[in-house]
C-alpha cells in the first residue's frame, strides 16, 4: 500500500516535470527554428523539406542581412534611441519613484494613481498626434524625437518599478544613516543607491528592451532615420525570406541575454507594480 503510494507520487511528480519541459519547448522551439533559418546558407532557406539543423552552419544569411541597405544605420538608430530612452526615463522617472517610495506628502496617492492609470491608455497610439505636432515643431523624423516618445512610453513603468525597488530598501537604513551623520542626500547615495542598484539596472535593461522592440511609434515618427524594427516592417513584403529570418532572429536575440539578467528582478519589477 505504502509503496504504491510512493510510486504514484513519483509518477505525478514526473508528469509535472514533463509538463514543465513541454512548456519550455513551446517557448524554445520556435526560437531554435528561427535560429536555424538565420544560421543556414541563404539557399537552404528555400530548400524543402526544411532542414531542422543548420547544415552546414553558416553566417552567410546573417551577414547578408546586416549588409543590406539601411540595416547598419537602423541598428545604430535603434541603439541610440534605446540608450537615450533608458537614460531619460531613468533620470526623469527614478526621482519620482524615489519620492513615492520615501516621502509622505499631499498628492502622493493621486500621482501614483495617475501613473498607474496611464497603463489603461494605448500609449503607442499617441504617436499619431505626436507625429503631427513634431512636424509642426520641426522635430519630425529624428531619433531624438522618437526617443522622447519612447521615454513617454517607458516613463510610467520606470516610475512604478523604481518606486518598488526603492521601497524594497527599508526606510530604517536611511534613517540609521541620518542619525550617524548623513544628510538626506548622503544617506541616499551611501545606503539606498547601492542597495537599489541591481534592481535599477534591471529596470533600465527592461527599458532598453522596450525601446528596442517598439515598432508602431518608430514607423510613424521616422522616415529616413528608421530604427531596425521600423525598417524591417516597411520592407517586409518586398524582402527575401533570408532577410526576414535573419532580421527576426537578430531582433529577438537581445531578449535571450537580457532576460538572463532581469530574471531575478522580474517579480520586483512586476510584483508590486500590480498593486
Amino acid at each position: 500500500m505504502k509503496s504504491s503510494n510512493t510510486f504514484l507520487r513519483y509518477v505525478s511528480r514526473g508528469l509535472v516535470y514533463l509538463l514543465a519541459i513541454l512548456m519550455a519547448l513551446w517557448v524554445l522551439l520556435p526560437i531554435y527554428l528561427i535560429g536555424v533559418a538565420a544560421f543556414s546558407e541563404q539557399l537552404a532557406v528555400y530548400k524543402y523539406p526544411r532542414p531542422f539543423f543548420p547544415s552546414p552552419f553558416s553566417t552567410e544569411t546573417m551577414v547578408f542581412f546586416l549588409k543590406s541597405t539601411g540595416v547598419a544605420a537602423s541598428v545604430r538608430s535603434s541603439v541610440v534611441v534605446a540608450l537615450i530612452t533608458l537614460s531619460l526615463s531613468t533620470l526623469i522617472g527614478a526621482p519620482a519613484g524615489y519620492a513615492i517610495a520615501r516621502f509622505v506628502f499631499r498628492g502622493r496617492e493621486t500621482f501614483r494613481l495617475l501613473v498607474v492609470s496611464t497603463r489603461a491608455f494605448p500609449i503607442v497610439i499617441l504617436s499619431i498626434p505626436l507625429a503631427v505636432s513634431f512636424i509642426e515643431w520641426g522635430m519630425y523624423d529624428s531619433v531624438y524625437s522618437l526617443a522622447l516618445m519612447h521615454t513617454a512610453l517607458a516613463l510610467p513603468f520606470t516610475i512604478l518599478i523604481t518606486s518598488s525597488v526603492f521601497a524594497s530598501v527599508p526606510r530604517d537604513l536611511e534613517e540609521a544613516a541620518m542619525t550617524l551623520g548623513c544628510s538626506q542626500l548622503q544617506a541616499f547615495v551611501r545606503v539606498s543607491l547601492p542597495l537599489a542598484l541591481p534592481g535599477l539596472a534591471a529596470a533600465t535593461l527592461f527599458t532598453f528592451v522596450l525601446s528596442w522592440n517598439e515598432v508602431f511609434a518608430a514607423v510613424i515618427l521616422t522616415v529616413r532615420n528608421r530604427t531596425l524594427p521600423a525598417l524591417v516592417l516597411t520592407v517586409l513584403d518586398v524582402s527575401p525570406l533570408p532577410y526576414r529570418f535573419a532580421g527576426g532572429f537578430f531582433m529577438l536575440a537581445p531578449s535571450l541575454i537580457f532576460m538572463l539578467f532581469i530574471r531575478k528582478y522580474l517579480f520586483n519589477l512586476w510584483g508590486k507594480v500590480t498593486k
Binding site: M23, A24, V27, L28, P30, I31, L33, I34, A37, V209, W212, N213, E214, V215, P229, V232, L233, R244, F245, G247, G248, F249, M251, L252, P254, S255, L256, F258, M259, I262, R263, L266
Partner: peptide, 18 residues
C-alpha cells in the same frame, strides 16, 4: 518562460511566419 517578454511583436510574427 520569461524570454518572450523581451521579444517584439514583429520578431514573433517573423518567427511564426517561418
Amino acid at each position: 518562460y520569461a524570454i518572450p517578454l523581451g521579444i517584439s511583436e514583429l520578431a514573433a510574427g517573423i518567427v511564426w511566419f517561418a
